[in-house]
Write a protein that binds this DNA or RNA. Structure first.
Lengths: 343, 343
DNA sequence: CTGAAAGCGCTTACAG
DNA sequence: CTGAAAGCGCTTACAG
């Protein structure tokens, strides 16, 4: 490994001068600069990251902590974060907590998880990252972020009650409202809803959005509501109960997986989604365009969430003193496909 | 930030002693050890990663370079890599090259990509990782790995002609052979194949497997072969041409996306997959179980590929002198669902 | 414009 | 069992 010292010797200058050139200081003569730069190029010299990080306070790197990389939302958000930092010449390092893989879907009941988060933050601080982004696997109030952080931290896909920490989420409530309104505008007056698990924040927000739309459009609140488990089977079971009385002309599922379960039920009954009964999903997962007919659903702007989180973090890094923590909400879009029919 | 020096002062011992305790050296009295450990705990001291890395040669961290995180194969492989290293107390750092996102599916025609790989390797060497895993987005011969590596490197999901570098892939040929045999055992004698792009290595290997099975089972090579583009539309188009003459009773698609295209075509014709015509896929992507009927396909053991790559790398790190580079092939499984019927 | 020197927080022979 | 000292490769006042 070539070092500063060797470059300095080769050029017969001091290491200070080489360092100054490397760091774009202006106090070096054009002649030496060119000479040194040539040698640097020729030797393939790269500054030692450890030494630099040890000495300087800034490492130009940020840490990303992620609940679980295999969650459907993760890669999009990370891609957004990484694209933003790439543009701004920051290095992004990923720490994957693997909560779902290790502990299943109910991992947040496992108290050990807070220690794991704490430890990940500690490690990033030990590595001296300039900032940290915590990417959650689902919306929730995150209470395990310590107060005495050495580096700025922003939360993506969840929030916190700590007033000093920024977060970026998507506008879950409004998207659910928009989708419901869309259903109503298509002539549906009795809309069943297959919600997620009852205490889940996504469930609560989407339900709120649904109710808002119902109210705005002057409809009555449906009694056709089932809490389900976010998966295909529970969607199927819920459909079986909800649609038995033939009262509803549409079903709003709070995710695409449960919508697939509704398709299963309809299939079994010889009913066609979008024709006999309309169904709407949420998430715009890949499967939604492979279902037949293709599923009308809500698109969550994952990449934008990632980019926005990165932007907030970078602002905070660059203005540690006069930044304003903010709770940012990115808007979702409705993807209209073939599963919602006009009445 | 608490430092070694502060701990030492608090305990009235030298920093050497504290360092020795931290690194599990045995030459410390039980009494001092306990006293120091207590203070370390109390102060929440964490060793400075930079300082340690600068001084010691080993950082207990590895770098993962990935063509593109958003490829379907990426998260599984990475999850495998990270689980292995977590068990062995290594830190894994991810660098996402974002080739597909930046340059589309044909990015490897873009010569700039080799520089990007080179640069990623350089950066990891500057960070002083103990080793590097390169996770490819699709199988190919990787020729841009420099010879003068400072850290061991292993390739996952692709290979190289450099004899000193280990790689781990899956047995593409054998899986295609197995799937074809499965089709034949179900009574199919005329099997159409919708291959991927012609020069692609997956295409070549799968074709080889298909031919091997045909030969082993004493069948004649089918004339019903189309090269397609790996996507749904091209699968649809290929099906249209291949199935027009009603000669084939089954179609083997070299990925699930194209199989979905075949479903589209069959649907249009009022034909039922698995009943009127059998169809097999490859990859076992999420969509394959949401297609109707559920798609019989090849499962690629992504997590195993990741874990194996991690294992090979760790072996090489621990035995830099007497390790044997190897080309490892992980076996695939066949997932039998509903799209293949018995004749 | 240039360089000698201190120091970032550790680890590692080495001496006692 | 314990510690003084050198040194990893840089950056940063500071002096000239």
């Amino acid at each position: 490994m070539v070092t500063l010292k060797e470059i300095a010797e080769k050029c017969s200058v001091s290491i200070t001068t080489v360092s100054n050139i490397l760091n774009g200081k202006s106090n070096v003569s054009q002649e030496t600069k060119e000479r040194v730069l040539a040698v640097i190029k020729e030797t393939g010299y790269r500054p030692n990251y450890m030494a630099r990080g040890l000495r300087a306070s800034k490492t130009n790197s940020v840490g990303i902590i992620i609940d679980d990389l295999t969650e459907f939302s993760s890669t999009g958000i990370i891609d957004g974060i990484m694209s933003y930092f790439e543009e701004h010449h920051y290095k992004a390092i990923l720490e994957n907590l693997r909560f779902y893989s290790k502990w299943g879907t109910k991992w947040y009941h496992n108290k050990g998880y807070e220690d794991a988060v704490q430890q990940a933050i500690d490690e990033f601080e030990a590595i001296k990252v300039d900032g940290i982004i915590y990417v959650a696997g689902h919306a929730r109030c995150i209470s395990c972020i310590p107060d005495n952080l050495n580096a700025p931290l922003v939360i993506a896909y969840a929030f916190t009650e700590n007033p000093g920490i920024s977060s970026v989420e998507f506008d879950d409530m409004q998207a659910a409202c928009d989708m419901t309104t869309n259903l109503i505008k298509n002539g549906h007056k009795k809309i069943a809803v297959i919600a997620g698990t009852q205490k889940n924040i996504h469930t609560q927000r989407r339900l709120e959005g649904y109710k808002k739309a119902i109210k705005e459009q002057g409809l009555e609140d449906s009694r056709h509501l089932k809490y389900a488990n976010w998966d295909r089977e529970s969607g199927y079971e819920a459909a079986k109960e909800l649609l038995a009385d033939n009262e509803c002309t549409a079903v709003f599922c709070f995710n695409d997986l449960m919508a697939a379960g509704v398709y299963d039920y309809l299939d079994e009954k010889g009913l066609v989604p979008g024709k006999d009964i309309s169904v709407a999903g949420y998430d715009n997962r890949t499967i939604s365009q492979y279902l037949k007919p293709a599923l009308t659903t809500v698109e969550i702007p994952l990449v934008d969430i990632g980019r926005k989180a990165a932007e907030l973090l970078l602002n905070q890094i660059n203005n540690p003193d006069n930044f304003e923590p903010q709770q940012h909400f990115v808007q979702c879009g409705i993807i209209e496909r073939k599963s919602v029919g006009k009445l």
